[in-house]
């Protein structure tokens, strides 16, 4: 459900085509995903979904999969659809 939205945010903030963001996308596979864009990405996701990542999480959510899982977890626990 929020996966498409997430990919779109990643494409916008990392400045890569959405098609380039595969299931395995991570800071390892996408060169443009540097630390500055990671800040934008985190801020944008927080803004769009109304969630907040902790310091420890920010260091971990460096792949599409990790992002997606972490986000789902937050949305589920917050009771937001």
């Amino acid at each position: 459900m929020c996966d498409q939205h997430l990919v779109r945010i990643m494409a916008n903030t990392l400045k890569v085509p959405a098609a380039a963001i595969g299931d395995d996308a991570s800071t390892e596979t996408i060169l443009a995903w540097d630390s500055l864009r990671h800040i934008n990405l985190v801020m944008a996701i927080e803004e769009e979904f109304g969630v907040e990542f902790g310091e420890q999480e920010i260091a971990i959510i460096t792949s599409r999969r990790a992002l997606s899982e972490s986000l789902k977890e937050k949305l589920d626990s917050d009771g937001v659809p």
Binding site: R8, K15, N40, E48
Partner: peptide, 11 residues
């Protein structure tokens, strides 16, 4: 309003 949508336009 959001960073993501502004980036989309600017990009």
């Amino acid at each position: 309003d959001s960073l993501s949508s502004i980036l989309e336009v600017v990009n």
